[in-house]
C-alpha cells in the first residue's frame, strides 16, 4: 500500500506531533513542580497569624507578612487605577477611532509591543530617576507608577483583542441610529466587552503583583510595620519581602519567604480563575 515515501512522511509526522506533545508536557510539568515546591515549603509557614501579623521588628522567628500583603494590594491597586483607564483608552483608539492599518495605529501597536518587552528593571530605574531621586525618598506610589507602566501594554493589548471580538453588527446598529460613537462606546460597546476587559486587567494585576525588580529599586527600604501611606513612604510588599528574607542569614526568614511565595501564588491563582470565569460569562453575553 505504501506509495513513494509515505512511510517516511508518517514517521516524520509522528515524530513532530510527539515532540509537540512532549514539549507541552514539559511546560505543564514545570508549573506543577514549582507549585508543588512552593506548597510543600510554604504550607508549614502558613497560619492565621502569618496572614494577620507583621514581621518581627528586628528579625527572628514568628510574626507574619500582613504588612506585605496590605502593601502589595495597595501598590497594585493604585497601579491598576492608573493603568486601566489609559490602557482601555489606548485600545479604544486602536479599535474604534483610528483607521485600521493606518500609520499612527501601526506605530501605536508597535509601541505597545515594545513596551511589553521592556525589561522591568529598566522601568524601575526610569522611575527611580524620575520620582525617587528628586524626592530623595522611596515610596509605594513610585512602585505603583512602575507597575502601571508594566501593566499598561498588557491591558491595552488584551482590551484591544476583546474589542475586536465585539460583533461589527453592533457598531453598525449604533451608527445607523444616529447616536454619536462615544455614546455607543460607553453604553453598548464597552458594556459588551466589559468582562473581557476586566479579565485582561486582572491578568495584568496578577503579573504586576509578583514584579520584583522595579520594587527593589524604588520601594525596597521599608520598615516592617503595616502602613497605608503610599505617598512619601516605602511600603512593605511581598516580592521584596521574599527577596530580603532569602538573602538574610536567618533560617526562620527563609521559611517566611516560602510562606510569602505561597500566598502570592494563591492570590495570583485566584485572580486568574476569577478572570477566566468573567471572560466566559462575557463571551456568553456576546453570544459567542
Amino acid at each position: 500500500m505504501a506509495s513513494g515515501n509515505l512511510r517516511r512522511r508518517e514517521a516524520v509526522s509522528r515524530a513532530i506531533s510527539g515532540l509537540a506533545t512532549a514539549s507541552s508536557l514539559v511546560a505543564v510539568a514545570a508549573l506543577v513542580i514549582v507549585t508543588v515546591a512552593v506548597v510543600r515549603h510554604g504550607a508549614g509557614a502558613l497560619s492565621l497569624s502569618f496572614l494577620v501579623k507583621d514581621p518581627p521588628q528586628f528579625g527572628g522567628p514568628g510574626g507574619g507578612i500582613a504588612s506585605a500583603i496590605v502593601g502589595t494590594s495597595l501598590i497594585v491597586a493604585m497601579a491598576a487605577i492608573i493603568a486601566t483607564p489609559v490602557g482601555v483608552l489606548c485600545a479604544l483608539y486602536l479599535v474604534e477611532f483610528s483607521a485600521p492599518g493606518s500609520r499612527p495605529a501601526r506605530a501605536m501597536r508597535l509601541a505597545l509591543d515594545l513596551m511589553q518587552g521592556l525589561p522591568t528593571v529598566v522601568v524601575g530605574l526610569f522611575i527611580f530617576g524620575l520620582v525617587v531621586k528628586p524626592a530623595q525618598a522611596e515610596s509605594g506610589f513610585a512602585g505603583s507608577l512602575a507597575l502601571a507602566i508594566i501593566m499598561l501594554p498588557l491591558i491595552a493589548r488584551s482590551s484591544q483583542e476583546v474589542l475586536l471580538t465585539v460583533p461589527r453588527g453592533l457598531r453598525d446598529g449604533t451608527d445607523a441610529l444616529g447616536v454619536d460613537r462615544w455614546r455607543a462606546i460607553m453604553t453598548v460597546i464597552l458594556p459588551t466587552a466589559l468582562g473581557g476587559i476586566l479579565t485582561g486587567t486582572i491578568l495584568a494585576v496578577a503579573r504586576a503583583a509578583g514584579e520584583t525588580a522595579p520594587l527593589l529599586l524604588i520601594d525596597g527600604a521599608f520598615t516592617p510595620g503595616t502602613t497605608v501611606q503610599l505617598f512619601g513612604h516605602a511600603v512593605p510588599n511581598i516580592p521584596v519581602l521574599i527577596f530580603t528574607a532569602v538573602e538574610s542569614a536567618d533560617p526562620s526568614a527563609f521559611a517566611r519567604a516560602w510562606g510569602a511565595a505561597l500566598v502570592l501564588l494563591a492570590l495570583i491563582l485566584i485572580a486568574n480563575v476569577g478572570a477566566r470565569v468573567l471572560l466566559a460569562r462575557s463571551r456568553a453575553r456576546m453570544g459567542l
Binding site: 460583533p167 453588527g169 453592533l170 453598525d172 446598529g173 449604533t174 445607523a176 441610529l177 444616529g178 453598548v188 458594556p191 459588551t192 453575553r285 456576546m286 453570544g287
Partner: peptide, 12 residues
C-alpha cells in the same frame, strides 16, 4: 435609519 441583513440587537 437602517436595518441590516443579520439581526443585530444589542446585548440588552
Amino acid at each position: 435609519g437602517m436595518v441590516f441583513q443579520k439581526p443585530n440587537p444589542f446585548p440588552k
